[in-house]
Amino acid sequence: MTSHLTDRVTGVFLLLFAIWYGYRTTLFKVSFMVDPVGPKAFPLILAILMGVLSLYLIIKPDPSPVWPGSATWIRIGLITLTFIAYAYLMVPIGFVLATTFEVTALALIFRGPLLKSLVGAFILSAALYGLFDMLLGLSLPTGLIFRGWWG
């Protein structure tokens, strides 16, 4: 028998979410009504529709998808960790270094060769910085640690 667990769990989760989402509308501080429906009605309609559809999903679920094995989840976890690290590192160490680390790390996770990954990542990061920051005028972080050196 095929499993339908994924959709059932998702349905329950969505149902709880819909209840919470609808409940939150009662906490909106509405001081005066500018229009007949106000800011609560639309979210409430969405919550009710979501509630009904999630019940349907619980009652008539699709067969569960083929979830990837643990190796993939480890890779996905590692990738997510690199994103979080990037968010905290990019301002202190600057776009070029942070992006070089990020691209190298991802390339290694995807089984790229170390040296090629590192060199490619550095060239790419420097090129992006040159194109977007220097040429096109977006402001990408230079890096706090380089502050004394230039600029």
Partner: peptide, 28 residues
């Protein structure tokens, strides 16, 4: 090769996401 192309897509995405509000919070 895919091991370089995919990370490169991420790098370009970071440029765009960061530039929206100049905020690392958006990367998260």
């Amino acid at each position: 090769p895919g091991w370089f192309l995919m990370p490169a897509v991420v790098a370009v995405s970071f440029v765009a996401v960061y530039s929206v509000n100049n905020s690392p919070f958006d990367i998260l």
